[in-house]
């Protein structure tokens, strides 16, 4: 017995409301992130991730209120990503009740920001989010870091980037395959495994989950420490409890 593998539902939040249609039969207001997070908490989610996809910085303040409300009602770890660009953004989110922040574009634009943030607040609250796309297939595949939702190539090798971010003080990597994101075809297991085996810090696999066996594969074949999914939970197809029971049946240690 030991550390459990984590299941993390992810919510995209735009101006304080959940987007991408979350449908639970008995939730009155399907757009309220706190209400949905509570539901996932009751189902046994190990953590919750909010990705703020709000375009304007004015509306970003709304996210602070969402996080504050969440911290009053849900007592599991919360990660907030999206628009974390400076130390003040980190401070504001942690102050509102987030446990970790996910840094993506700002890390690519200014890697020292990760170092600075980890130095200020500790590695335990700094997650570096990496959006990776395969740029070379075959025997020795290669993945590159992309930004702006997978539209902009950076030329940076995803594996060496993950290692560099570890050296800079990241406490965890949130690894999303841009090839698989939204496809429901399962994780890019080669990517997940390559990164997980390369870095000494925990890795959350993300992008492509369409059924419960994909979660199992991410852990057993991908060696992920945690698995993140959105749509399979949002549409009420599966509960977090269903996911954990399936994982337990496959011999994976989970918190039930």
């Amino acid at each position: 017995m030991g550390l459990a593998k984590r299941v993390i539902p992810c919510l995209d939040v735009d101006n304080g409301r959940v987007v991408k249609g979350v449908r639970f039969v008995d939730i009155r207001d399907a757009g309220d992130p706190v209400e949905i997070a509570r539901r996932y908490d009751q189902q046994g989610a190990d953590e919750i991730t909010f990705l703020d996809i709000t375009a304007s910085s004015d509306n970003r303040r709304t996210m602070v209120h969402v996080v504050e409300a969440m911290a009053e009602q849900v007592f599991i770890p919360l990660t907030v990503g999206g628009g974390i660009r400076q130390i003040e953004d980190v401070r504001r989110m942690l102050g509102a009740g987030a446990d970790k922040v996910a840094i993506n574009t700002a890390a690519v634009a200014n890697p020292e920001f990760v170092q600075e943030a980890a130095g200020h607040f500790g590695s335990q609250c700094i997650v570096v989010a990496i959006d990776a796309k395969q740029v070379k297939a075959g025997e020795s595949p290669r993945w590159e870091v992309f930004t702006h939702g997978g539209r902009r190539a950076t030329g940076i090798d995803a594996v060496s980037w993950a290692l560099r971010m570890t050296e800079y003080g990241a406490g965890e990597i949130l690894l999303t395959s841009m090839d698989r994101d939204g496809t429901r075809d399962g994780f890019d297991l080669a990517l997940v495994r390559t990164v997980c085996d390369a870095v000494p810090i925990p890795v959350i696999a993300s992008g492509g989950v369409g059924n419960l066996d994909h979660l199992v594969d991410g852990i057993l074949q991908g060696h992920a420490d945690a698995v993140l999914a959105a749509s399979i939970f949002h549409f009420g197809e599966y509960t977090v409890g269903d996911a954990k029971r399936r994982m337990a049946e496959c011999g994976i240690e989970v918190r039930l």
Partner: peptide, 13 residues
């Protein structure tokens, strides 16, 4: 036999 990551992060007994 898999490597254990540090930080120790998550739910343990």
């Amino acid at each position: 036999g898999q490597a254990l990551k540090v930080p120790h992060m998550g739910w343990n007994q």
